[in-house]
């Protein structure tokens, strides 16, 4: 696969480390309690279809990216710097 890095252009997926569901960015507030953290740590989306997921450009510029990918076709619909996504959701 080729991942369209927002800064570096198309990069081979072999340069990246995969983490999974981008929901991992939504760390609960520490006051939210154990149940909220339990869901955060153990429950992940794994849809057959469009999925937002985290990829780390480990053998590149060390950016974390949020990649929107169709898990059935491997079509990539977009990639953003995770920093931008995180700032927007704050």
């Amino acid at each position: 696969m080729l991942i369209p890095h927002p800064l570096l252009g198309p990069r081979d997926a072999q340069e990246f480390t995969y983490l999974g569901d981008a929901a991992l960015m939504n760390r609960p507030d520490p006051a939210a309690g154990e149940d909220a953290f339990c869901d955060h740590v153990y429950l992940r989306g794994n849809p057959a279809g469009v999925h937002r997921e985290l990829w780390f450009h480990e053998q590149g510029d060390r950016s974390w990216l949020v990649v929107t990918r169709n898990t059935l076709t491997h079509e990539i619909l977009g990639a953003e710097l995770a920093t931008d996504v995180a700032r927007r959701s704050e």
């Binding site: 985290l54 780390f56 480990e58 060390r62 974390w64 710097l81 995770a82 920093t83 995180a86 700032r87």
Partner: peptide, 18 residues
């Protein structure tokens, strides 16, 4: 060494970008 670095970058970029 690699895992800790990756996780620290995750925390920096994905959790606390500011």
């Amino acid at each position: 060494a690699g895992t800790v670095y990756r996780n620290m970058e995750f925390a920096r970029q994905c959790l606390w970008p500011d």
